[in-house]
Design a protein around this nucleic acid. Structure first.
Lengths: 146, 146
DNA sequence: TCCAATTAGATTGCGTACGATTTAATTTAC
DNA sequence: GTAAATTAAATCGTACGCAATCTAATTGGA
């Protein structure tokens, strides 16, 4: 009836789904004091790496469309993390920029997460291995979804 | 500033998040002809394994609360996949049971997914490895979230 | 027995995800 | 130079996830 391949795919998909939800729940604990959700934290990570990015560029990095980002960024703007500013040379684009708060709370937020992460007892090599394998899987899945 | 541990945790969490979303998107393609979403497919998988389960038992397997399952199961009932029947001996419980459609379309659904999965070119050993490593990670995360 | 604690499911509210469409601005092709 | 194509965001609608709360049914101990 069912291939071994498919049972494996089912297991892998579910296991990814479970791990992702648990990891996010874990992060939410550390982020809660700042009123941040995990997707919002991802936006901060991207902006700490490179500030003043247009919306679509953030979307490419996180694989979010404007339908996800627009309301998310509006919430973050309302809470004072960033600003959304129309580009004068191209009125279609929106430049996302960190506020002083958004920049300065980085250390604090990292420290809060670090405290939670430290309690994990996972071998760094296992981490690296999972990341590497996931990258391969992600590349394959992206190719398939063309 | 930031530990190597935390950067790794960030990378792993994001990579899980990405992989999970892509995998689900991949499954949705195969499930679309049946009007099923991935979480709904998970419910079917659980019921194909063991029919006539109470709601909370499904919840334990999938780690969903009633706040997620109640509306999801109502949608599946409306579409004719299953029935929700109050237990006469305990009026608090709801037994979830597959309809004839829910049972009989299993082969068809599996075949649709199998066709999509076959196109993947992933080494079964890599699959198994990812599943095993995720299981360890999931156990660790569950322990941490107490 | 009877009432406090527990359990099961439903409800509310908020924040994603994402397919599909819309609107507005810019590019391009002729 | 201008109409068609493209691009960027926004909007709309549906379906999760999940924290918090509520309601109703059952259980268990004094």
């Amino acid at each position: 009836m069912e291939d071994i391949d498919m049972t494996l795919a089912n297991q892998l998909c579910f296991s990814m789904y479970r791990a992702s939800r648990l990891f996010i729940k874990f992060y939410q604990q550390a982020l809660q004091p700042f009123g941040l959700t995990y997707p919002q934290y991802l936006v901060l990570l991207a902006l700490w790496e490179e500030d003043r990015q247009p919306l679509h560029s953030l979307g490419e990095q996180l694989d979010f469309g404007s339908n996800t980002l627009t309301p998310l960024l509006k919430r973050m703007e309302r809470k004072g993390w960033l600003t959304r500013e129309v580009v004068s040379s191209d009125h279609r684009q929106l430049i996302i920029q960190l506020t002083e708060t958004g920049r300065s709370r980085k250390t604090e937020i990292f420290e809060s997460i670090r405290i939670c992460v430290r309690q994990q007892e996972i071998d760094p090599d296992d981490y690296r291995d999972l990341v590497a394998r996931n990258h391969i899987l992600i590349a394959t899945l992206e190719k398939m979804l063309h």
